[in-house]
Simulated assay, not measured.
Amino acid sequence: MEFETEDAAYNFYNDYAYRVGFSVRISKGHKDKYGKIVNRVFCCSCEGYRGKDKREDNVKNPRPQSRFGCLAKMKVNSRLTGKYRVTEFIAEHAHETTTPSKSHLLRSQRKMTIPQVAEVHLADDSGITPKASCELLARRAGGRENLGFIPEDYRNYLRSKRTMQMKSGDTGGVLEYLQKMQLEDSNFFYAIQVDEDDLITNIFWADVKMMIDYSYFGDVVCFDTTYRKNKEGRPFAMFVGVNHHKLTIIFGAALLYDETTESFIWLFNTFAKAMSEKKPKTILTDQDAAMAKALALVWPETCHRLCIWHLYQNALKKLSIVFGKFQDFSKDFNKCIYEYEEEKVM
């Protein structure tokens, strides 16, 4: 069997992988003196074994194993005829393959088409949420299995798009401001996270007053990400507390590009670093799953509690019929939150 191009060979093997139920990875290849690929190996994504992680003893929630030494592969070579001829093919897998109904979830089977990308841009510019837009695209395609990508791919694409759209003047302005603040006060703290393309993703800063306030009143912290930067809709996060006059004080602030577990892990680690590794005893947040996961990983000793305002908002959404039907339910609900007794364990 021969193919005109390397891409044609890959597409053939990937279509075969879809029917069998595994994901394809482009493996090793060789080039001639002109830089053209003369042979290539396409293998199962479970080929080989993962290298030993140096942090293995310290990682509490390690990633699941994804490589099992699978030998399934297809090798093509173009040295003889100029066309990519199959010179080796191994069909047997060292692991169970997925069912055809789940093949669309495999990494090599997921790709956003040009028309879909255009719709993503239109929805983003119109202010439509990724969840609503993704559901609409899935309905048009006849179901998520026919969509060609998953919601995570949608969010990742939006993140890349928004990062690329950030003008160099904006980036330079942010850096210039932070550097100016640090020149005026050597104790001013700021940290910037960049991605693999050296583009800014997350920013955190705290001045001396914030650090001093945290040293006195940082036992209980409220972490709020409900604010949004205009147009882009990026989260503006604040670490907030209360002083001895019952006034709201700010311990630190951050501009985030998404609300993923990875971003929160970076932010919580950076906040602790700015505050001389002092972690709060209690932190109040909303019911964000990614945030809760990050807190459990980074600050396991900190007591995590939900914000009362969010509890009431969720109660109104989920129990609106109950509130309307039973007049005393609101009072009973307040008692459940405020009027409680602590039992001492003997």
Rank of each mutant, 00 (worst) to 15 (best):
V38K: 06
D288L: 02
F323H: 08
E259P: 00
W266K: 11
V24H: 05
A141W: 09
G169F: 02
D198F: 14
V174L: 14
T261V: 13
R140F: 06
I90M: 11
A138T: 13
I128S: 02
K167A: 04
F333G: 06
K229A: 15
H121V: 10
D332Q: 06
L316F: 15
K325A: 12
E341C: 13
A138K: 13
C44Q: 01
D213H: 07
S133Y: 07
L71E: 14
G21I: 04
K318C: 05
C303V: 15
C44V: 08
K28A: 05
E301C: 04
I37F: 00
L147S: 09
P115K: 12
M1I: 05
K111F: 11
M238D: 01
H104A: 03
D207Y: 05
H244Q: 08
E119H: 13
L136N: 15
D197H: 13
K231I: 06
R155E: 14
T225L: 03
F333S: 01
D15L: 14
S263E: 07
G82T: 01
F68K: 11
V345H: 05
F189S: 01
K75V: 14
N39C: 06
R79H: 03
L256W: 04
L306C: 10
K229V: 15
M211E: 09
S23N: 03
L316Y: 14
T261I: 15
I26Q: 10
G148H: 01
R139S: 15
K52D: 07
R228I: 10
M166Y: 05
T129R: 04
K279P: 03
T171M: 11
I26P: 07
D32F: 08
E56Y: 05
H93M: 06
A123Y: 10
G48H: 10
K28L: 09
A237Y: 01
K335F: 03
T302L: 12
E262I: 14
P280G: 08
F189T: 00
N269W: 14
K83I: 04
D197S: 14
L105N: 02
A72V: 06
R50T: 08
G127I: 08
L267Q: 07
L71W: 07
E145I: 12
G142V: 11
C46W: 13
K281A: 12
S263I: 09
R19D: 15
N243R: 00
S126C: 07
T261D: 12
Y216S: 11
V221G: 07
E88P: 06
Y340A: 12
K180V: 01
K28F: 07
W309Q: 00
S108M: 06
K318I: 03
F329Y: 11
W299F: 14
D32K: 04
M181T: 00
L256K: 07
D170I: 12
Y338Q: 01
F42M: 00
L306H: 11
T129G: 05
N314A: 02
E4K: 15
D185H: 00
H304K: 13
K231M: 06
R55K: 12
F42K: 04
R79F: 02
W309D: 05
A296F: 13
V240K: 02
L297P: 07
G21R: 08
I90F: 11
E47H: 14
T171F: 03
D185R: 00
